[in-house]
Design a protein around this nucleic acid. Structure first.
Lengths: 242, 242
DNA sequence: CGCTAGGTTGAGGTACGTCAAGCTAAGTGG
DNA sequence: CCACTTAGCTTGACGTACCTCAACCTAGCG
């Protein structure tokens, strides 16, 4: 059938086996695709979503802002990510999901998703597992923001994204798409744009990464993951019954 | 029946109605209580839990550490909190849950919880809602660590804890239990113990809080929540069908 | 060919961290 | 009941990672 769910299925199956019936049930959901242009809200802060949302292409992020305009991004989302399961469980959005680039997404009504989860508890657990993995990624980011310096933060982000792209088959040869401005990286790292620029420059000149034209290539994985204190346990990349 | 689940039921019912049958089903689970002394692991990092865990008394925290011994706490848990739903969905713990004080907890086997969730989807959604609320609390902490200064971080923490204690009926008159050393607060705030001490001193001398002998009393809620840029939306304190 | 968003670089300021000392209060053994 | 210990709190002096402001540079685009 459609290639719509390919990345999602890859992502789920990296964590547990899906039966053919389960895959078909996912396909049969009433997905509605939509496009969003860069910098627009896919789901607005304080909104009350009635449907969940899967990222098909592009890059998105969970974003929170202060009254003074300062912005903090909590997690970057890549194709295959369920980017709004939260709305399914929480009534009001406490953050926005914004398109970092032009994005295509697929919406599915909460009512349908709820029925699927009730009818197929194993799929339900897997779907909520993705929610829990997002939470684990964000929890790791708390450690990163609270206790690591700028260079380590950036190294950590790069290592994590590489592995996540690799899971959905969108990375090869240690390179992956990264179509994001340095100002946005700064909002992810909790740093100023100026300092972010210097830190990127240092990673480049140290020969750990090549970074240009919307792509990052890791040229020294060992050194980079060491610098970031990166340990991928929190990504839950092991496969087994859940 | 037992008062064991009182705080949990209060916490769930603050978010949605529970039927008598649902409450009974929760009571009937095969809960096993246990005690942990301060500073011990309730659930160890990298362990593979086979049961979930509810905090009955005391205070616990999710803790992550770096190789150099630096520690970061992601969230403080109070009685009524389900402190390990993660183990239900994720195979390996990517963080530890530690007892900040002497704690009593109640364990329930994953198998039983899974059955309950499959049999009563509404209870299942509510349980996962608690997981999502924890995630929202942690996400808010990313904003706090990334974009707020020391004083605001502390103010935010105090406001949040007050409301959470209030939900389970354990706060009154703007006071709540806080049996935690300043070093632990520092590990929560991502600061050094010395700076944390100065910031606490400043909050005290500004007349926003009284803080002593294991209790915090907020003496100027307006000023404190303003200082912290505190907005409780992320705590999901609204009641309605979920 | 000019405009604009984004990237780069420099200079000076500040919110933190680190180290170190001394204090306080609670618990412990004698 | 008192010396001793110990964990936690407090304060000072000094260092630094990062911020702010400001200028300039670069590449893509109409």
């Amino acid at each position: 059938m459609s290639a719509l769910l390919d990345a999602l299925v890859l992502s789920l199956e990296r964590r547990d086996r899906l039966s053919d019936g389960e895959k078909e049930a996912l396909q049969r959901l009433n997905w509605q695709t939509a496009s969003f242009s860069a910098a627009s809200d896919i789901i607005s802060d304080r909104s009350h979503p009635t449907r969940s949302c899967l990222l098909l292409s592009g890059m998105a992020a969970r974003s929170m802002s202060l009254a003074n305009g300062d912005r903090q991004l909590a997690i970057l989302h890549i194709p295959g990510d369920f980017i709004d399961l939260h709305g399914l469980l929480l009534k009001v959005m406490d953050h926005a999901i914004i398109a970092m680039t032009d994005c295509r997404v697929a919406f599915v009504p909460h009512t349908e998703l709820r029925q699927l989860i009730a009818a197929m508890p194993h799929v339900g657990r897997l779907i909520f597992t993705m929610l829990a993995i997002d939470a684990a990624i964000e929890r790791n980011w708390i450690l990163t923001l609270g206790r690591k310096r700028a260079e380590s933060r950036l190294a950590n982000l790069i290592c994590e994204l590489y592995l996540r792209y690799e899971v959905v088959g969108a990375a090869e040869n240690f390179a992956f798409p990264f179509p994001v401005s340095q100002a946005a990286v700064a909002d992810m790292l909790g740093l100023s744009a100026v300092h972010t620029n210097r830190v990127i420059g240092h990673l480049r000149s140290s020969g750990l990464v090549e970074w240009g034209r919307g792509t990052i290539r890791i040229t020294d994985w060992r050194a980079l993951s060491e610098l970031g204190g990166f340990d991928p346990v929190y990504l839950n990349l092991t496969k087994g019954p859940r």
